[in-house]
């Protein structure tokens, strides 16, 4: 989201004492971006409908008793927002701490700097004689295309959205169970090959924690050979059909290890089909 264009009605608000103008209908988060204020997000993505469930993006809004999620709350004229008060910092810290205390965030790279910034200490829960409950699930390796490791899952709903209304319209996965026992699942937890999954990989593309991972990446990580710093990314156009999807080929040691699509691409919004996502094996003559 960029500055208000001429045709749109502009809304002005104050964020951290600065006045900001954005287009009507923008979110507080978009206004923060406009004002150059960095805001943590987890369940939000530009190519998905906001579900505002993780609450890491909360801000203080004048006139509101509770904090509000910046990723989904639309701006209104005269709004007064604070993004760095003790209350905001506390809630953000607690959200990160809670997550870290319950799931494996080791591959949720984007969260690490925020955990540091807010001083989140996930280890302060429980005691030696009283361990806390964590999400512990065996890794689901059910095919050669991608794996699911729900002990890394933060329940951000992104994969569900990508599989459902926001992109793929396959609805192979949904949230099942309730409370801390809630998990992303197929019906009766059947394997992916037995489910409606069409292997578009869009869920993997949006997962922020490594809970969903391409098998190539998973295998390399298992042997300690996943080296993002040694990877190059090449932009190309998918050759399977005439739609014109942009592909980003991630290459390590002269092999394609992952295919993504830019989430701001007008054709794909970051989403692909099985051919573009996984059909590159032919490149290696496999």
């Amino acid at each position: 989201m960029t500055a208000a264009t001429i045709t749109e009605t502009a809304v002005s608000l104050r964020i951290d004492g600065r006045s900001v103008e954005v287009a009507e209908g923008s979110t507080i988060h978009a206004a923060c971006v406009e004002a150059g204020i960095d805001t943590p997000t987890l369940c939000w993505a530009e190519n998905l409908t906001p579900v505002n469930v993780c609450r890491v993006c909360v801000v203080e809004m004048e006139g509101s008793r509770a904090l509000v999620p910046s990723c989904s709350r639309p701006v209104s004229d005269g709004m007064v927002i604070e993004t760095d008060t003790p209350r905001v910092r506390h809630s953000r810290k607690m959200v990160l701490e809670f997550l870290g205390s319950g799931v494996d965030l080791s591959q949720a790279d984007d969260l690490h700097r925020w955990m540091e910034a807010y001083g989140a200490d996930p280890d302060r829960y429980g005691a030696d004689d009283h361990p806390v409950e964590r999400v512990e699930e065996p890794v689901k390796v059910q095919d050669e295309l991608y794996i699911r490791d729900y002990s890394k899952c933060v329940l951000c709903y992104k994969c569900v959205e990508a599989c459902g209304d926001d992109a793929q319209h396959t609805f192979a996965i949904a949230v099942a169970g309730r409370g801390f026992d809630a998990r992303i699942s197929t019906e009766f937890d059947v394997t992916l090959p037995d489910s409606a999954c069409v292997y578009c990989g869009n869920c993997v593309g949006v997962c922020p924690t490594g809970a969903l991972q391409f098998k190539t990446e998973y295998d390399l990580r298992q042997v300690g050979e996943w080296r993002p710093d040694d990877q190059s990314v090449t932009r190309t156009v998918c050759s399977y059909c005439g739609v014109g999807c942009n592909l980003d080929l991630h290459v390590q040691d002269e092999r394609i290890v992952k295919v993504t699509s830019p989430s701001d691409h007008s054709v794909t919004s970051g989403h692909l089909c099985i051919k573009g996502r996984f059909g590159w094996q032919y490149v290696h003559g496999e």
């Binding site: 469930v53 409950e133 809630a182």
Partner: peptide, 16 residues
């Protein structure tokens, strides 16, 4: 037991 599990503060907070 009764948290719906949707948001982090309640889903994890109620357990802790």
């Amino acid at each position: 037991d009764e948290s719906c599990g949707q948001c982090v503060p309640c889903r994890v907070g109620a357990v802790r």
